[in-house]
Simulated assay, not measured.
Amino acid sequence: MAKYMLIMRATDEAWATVSETVTFDEMLSTMGRYNEELINAGVLIAAEGMEDAAKGVVIDFAGEKPVVTDGPYGETKELFGGFYIIEVASQEEAIEWGLRMPMMVPGSKLEIRRVPGIDEFPQDSEWVLKEKAWRERTGQV
């Protein structure tokens, strides 16, 4: 089994389309049914939606000193809207779940990336060993 992150991204126009055509209650119901499918299949590890980008901040490390900028952002091509972490047998299975993702309209994308496990990092690293100990203490392993 491997973990995969499904990253929901959309353009400003795609977000506007969804917010203009679907009520918040309808969105909760639709996403709730999808979440329930993931839970019932035993593959859901985590899922979170993101607050409006206008309420966020960006830390830009492009210059000598980091610059913190309040939202709304300048030009946005795609916004990160939320994510799922699922544990499935293969990338193909992750793609199958991604293809079933509701609320994806033209201008939306779903990026799927594998999340490497802690055991894939050098086991003689002091920092990996510390993280493994923390994961064990917190019941994550």
Score class of each variant (00 low, 15 high):
residue 137 R to H: 05
residue 63 G to R: 01
residue 41 A to Y: 06
residue 138 T to L: 07
residue 81 G to C: 09
residue 135 R to F: 08
residue 40 N to H: 00
residue 86 I to H: 07
residue 91 Q to L: 15
residue 111 E to D: 15
residue 132 K to I: 14
residue 3 K to Q: 15
residue 16 A to L: 03
residue 33 R to H: 03
residue 88 V to C: 13
residue 11 T to H: 01
residue 51 E to A: 15
residue 27 M to P: 00
residue 44 L to G: 08
residue 131 E to I: 15
residue 117 G to L: 10
residue 91 Q to T: 06
residue 27 M to K: 06
residue 21 T to K: 14
residue 126 E to S: 13
residue 107 G to T: 11
residue 18 V to P: 00
residue 81 G to Q: 04
residue 9 R to D: 06
residue 125 S to W: 04
residue 117 G to M: 12
residue 62 A to E: 07
residue 29 S to L: 11
residue 126 E to Y: 04
residue 8 M to C: 12
residue 56 G to T: 13
residue 23 T to K: 07
residue 141 V to P: 05
residue 140 Q to C: 02
residue 93 E to F: 07
residue 77 K to H: 12
residue 133 A to H: 04
residue 10 A to G: 15
residue 35 N to E: 09
residue 108 S to E: 04
residue 79 L to K: 02
residue 61 F to C: 00
residue 20 E to V: 03
residue 116 P to L: 11
residue 8 M to G: 09
residue 33 R to M: 08
residue 137 R to K: 15
residue 98 G to C: 13
residue 139 G to H: 00
residue 95 I to R: 03
residue 51 E to K: 15
residue 3 K to I: 05
residue 81 G to V: 00
residue 94 A to R: 10
residue 66 P to D: 01
residue 70 D to V: 09
residue 87 E to P: 07
residue 106 P to H: 02
residue 57 V to R: 14
residue 82 G to N: 07
residue 117 G to C: 02
residue 47 A to Q: 10
residue 6 L to P: 07
residue 117 G to R: 11
residue 48 E to V: 11
residue 56 G to M: 11
residue 28 L to Y: 09
residue 23 T to W: 05
residue 107 G to W: 06
residue 60 D to F: 01
residue 36 E to Q: 15
residue 6 L to T: 07
residue 139 G to T: 06
residue 120 E to T: 13
residue 59 I to H: 04
residue 50 M to S: 07
residue 16 A to I: 00
residue 49 G to S: 09
residue 122 P to D: 10
residue 35 N to I: 03
residue 27 M to F: 13
residue 29 S to M: 12
residue 35 N to D: 14
residue 24 F to Q: 12
residue 106 P to D: 13
residue 99 L to K: 15
residue 140 Q to M: 13
residue 84 Y to C: 08
residue 66 P to Y: 03
residue 74 G to P: 03
residue 64 E to V: 08
residue 36 E to I: 01
residue 17 T to Q: 09
residue 103 M to K: 01
residue 22 V to I: 05
residue 111 E to Q: 14
residue 43 V to C: 09
residue 102 P to W: 00
residue 72 P to N: 11
residue 94 A to V: 00
residue 11 T to F: 00
residue 123 Q to W: 05
residue 70 D to K: 14
residue 99 L to H: 12
residue 75 E to V: 02
residue 56 G to Y: 00
residue 131 E to S: 14
residue 24 F to W: 10
residue 24 F to P: 06
residue 115 V to R: 08
residue 12 D to Q: 01
residue 88 V to M: 09
residue 10 A to Q: 08
residue 141 V to Q: 13
residue 85 I to T: 14
residue 102 P to N: 05
residue 140 Q to P: 04
residue 8 M to P: 06
residue 59 I to G: 01
residue 124 D to R: 07
residue 11 T to L: 04
residue 116 P to I: 11
residue 109 K to G: 09
residue 124 D to E: 14
residue 61 F to A: 04
residue 59 I to R: 06
residue 119 D to Q: 10
residue 101 M to N: 08
residue 110 L to D: 06
residue 129 L to H: 03
residue 113 R to A: 11
residue 35 N to V: 08
residue 135 R to N: 04
residue 39 I to V: 15
residue 100 R to L: 12
residue 92 E to R: 10
residue 96 E to H: 10
residue 121 F to W: 13
residue 123 Q to P: 04
residue 5 M to A: 08
residue 35 N to C: 05
residue 65 K to C: 05
residue 14 A to C: 02
residue 39 I to L: 11
residue 67 V to Y: 00
residue 22 V to D: 00
residue 106 P to C: 08
